[in-house]
Simulated assay, not measured.
Amino acid sequence: MNDIAHSLHHIYARFVPAPNMEMLFWLSVTIAAFVAGMRIQIRLGRAPWANPVLFSIAVVACLLVLTETPYATYFTSVKIISFLLGPATVALAIPLADSIRLVTRSLPSMTLALLAGSLTSVVSGILLVMLFGGSHEVALSMAPKAVTTPIAIDITKQIGGIPALTAAFAILGGIIAAMIGEATLRRLGVTDWRAHGLAAGIAGSGIAAAQVAQRDPVGAAFAALGIGLNGLVTAIIVPLVLYLIPA
């Protein structure tokens, strides 16, 4: 295995020596891995467990290890993708605008679900870290785990957590929600796409919301609403909950 890794690193260093080539290489690899993951998921009948984000993360991580490429180098190469994460999240406002009347009628009944979901996510994340003896800093990083990644990182910076760890928690939570969220709700007898979308937006942020958006436009609208409102509510709840955490 070490010989294979050494050979791949040698080939990589020989053929991708220039910074511009390196940036183009990792950008292309990331996009290609995600497209391949999408095609695999489509071939498997859009199975939720065949998540393209998880697939692309696994592929890119393996290549980074095998080529001995520092994460800082990779992040610089794909910074444009990180930048586009914000506009992609905002684009979910399109189905929200299309279903605005339905959303407005459902708003009162969603308020309790939103508050319960946001509070449960924050408190459960903190208690889980404390239960396993994690540090105060890790608990702070875990608190905004269900918020979409850009907002979660900003919240963590403000409260003194570790942004990189929060990003990992947020992405992992989104992948898990995308993989098991719909199946879990259907087993509980929940078939309304409004509920599926709102749950995806609150529990799984953009990754789970994108999964729902592929299935139903109404679900996409409520997922967008869940992402936005959950970010707002979590930003308010987290500082309040901090007073209950021993430093």
Rank of each mutant, 00 (worst) to 15 (best):
M1Q: 13
M1S: 14
N2M: 12
L8G: 12
H9Y: 11
Y12L: 10
A18S: 13
N20A: 09
M23Q: 08
M23G: 03
M23P: 01
M23C: 06
L24N: 05
L27W: 05
L27I: 07
V29W: 01
A33C: 04
A33N: 06
R39D: 01
I40N: 01
I40T: 03
L44K: 13
R46S: 10
R46P: 00
P48C: 05
P48L: 07
P48Y: 03
W49M: 03
P52C: 08
V53Y: 01
S56W: 01
S56N: 05
V60F: 02
V60W: 04
A61L: 13
L63C: 06
L64W: 13
L64M: 15
Y71D: 10
A72I: 14
V78R: 04
L85I: 11
P87E: 02
V90H: 07
A91T: 08
L96F: 13
D98K: 14
I100C: 09
L115P: 09
A116H: 09
G117M: 07
L119F: 14
V122I: 15
G125T: 09
H136M: 04
V138M: 14
V138E: 05
K145R: 15
A146D: 03
A146N: 14
A146F: 02
I151H: 09
I151S: 09
D154F: 06
D154Q: 11
Q158N: 05
G160T: 12
P163R: 06
L165R: 01
A167D: 08
L172R: 04
R186H: 04
L188K: 00
V190G: 00
A195P: 02
G204N: 05
S205V: 07
S205C: 10
Q211L: 00
Q211H: 09
Q214T: 07
Q214N: 05
R215W: 07
R215M: 05
D216S: 13
P217W: 03
A223K: 12
N230P: 01
L232Y: 10
L232Q: 03
T234A: 15
T234W: 12
I236N: 03
P239L: 12
Y243L: 12
A247P: 11
